[in-house]
């Protein structure tokens, strides 16, 4: 029996479980879309549908972060920086949450020059934006803005809302997990930790990407900013 007692490789088990869960999520989200289409129009904006979609997206974000953070520690998280059309990229992220934004009467604005190109790892940055958007959807009153622009050779992407803003501890040390993970708000600080690590992995000519948090912006709410060299 000794030879059978081989420990399973955790990375392999996790990768294949994540793979499987993502297939399930695909089916789940697609079924949801189909159901919404079959509903009479007055029921389409139902909050329950939006909640279903919101929670499924959150599970997806968690899966991305889970695998990502494991691989950060394993130092095997490679970034694949390629050229992307930023406005197309932002539109694709936002469209995932259309149902949710409509159901919660959130006004979502995207502001980006059509010709703006950026150099980044599409999947990793998409993971960060999705996580930030789901959080913004949770904390905003009724407005979210997603904008991207170039400043001094940096690609800057900002997400603004008109909620209450970030708690002070988070503003002081964005992306740091200081006293372990607070399980009440755990997901948020883990998300920011992941975001700051991914930003840092984007390097160019001696410069490293970074994230910033502030309260204020156009509407006085929270502002999440990621800058990539």
């Amino acid at each position: 029996m000794k030879s059978l007692a081989k420990k399973p490789d955790f990375a392999m088990v996790m990768a294949s479980a994540v793979h499987d869960m993502k297939n399930s999520l695909s089916m789940l989200l697609h079924s949801l879309e189909t159901i919404v289409e079959e509903l009479p129009p007055e029921m389409r904006g139902s909050g329950k549908m939006a909640t279903l979609q919101y929670e499924a997206e959150r599970v997806n974000n968690d899966l991305i972060q889970l695998l990502g953070i494991y691989r950060l520690q394993d130092q095997s998280l490679g970034v694949h920086v390629e050229e992307h059309y930023v406005s197309d990229f932002l539109d694709e992220q936002v469209v995932r949450y259309e149902l949710l934004f409509n159901a919660r009467n959130i006004d979502m604005q995207v502001d980006c020059d059509r010709d703006l190109v950026g150099y980044f790892d599409r999947d990793l940055i998409a993971g960060i934006l999705n996580n930030t958007l789901t959080n913004a959807a949770r904390y905003t009153q009724d407005k979210i803005a997603l904008r991207a622009f170039e400043r001094d050779g940096w690609l800057v992407i900002e997400i603004d809302d008109n909620g209450r803003g970030y708690p002070k501890a988070m503003l002081d040390a964005p992306g740091e997990i200081q006293k372990g993970i607070d399980f009440d708000t755990g997901s948020t600080s883990l998300g920011l930790y992941f975001a700051s690590q991914v930003a840092y992995l984007h390097q160019q000519a001696g410069k490293q990407g970074f994230i910033e948090l502030e309260n204020g912006g156009e509407w006085g709410g929270g502002v999440f900013r990621i800058a990539l060299p």
Binding site: K22, N23, N60, D91, V95, R122
Partner: peptide
């Protein structure tokens, strides 16, 4: 590259 999960809206945009 399109990563799963794929939703109708995001696939259409892409």
């Amino acid at each position: 590259y399109i990563a799963k999960p794929i939703t109708k809206a995001s696939l259409q945009k892409r």
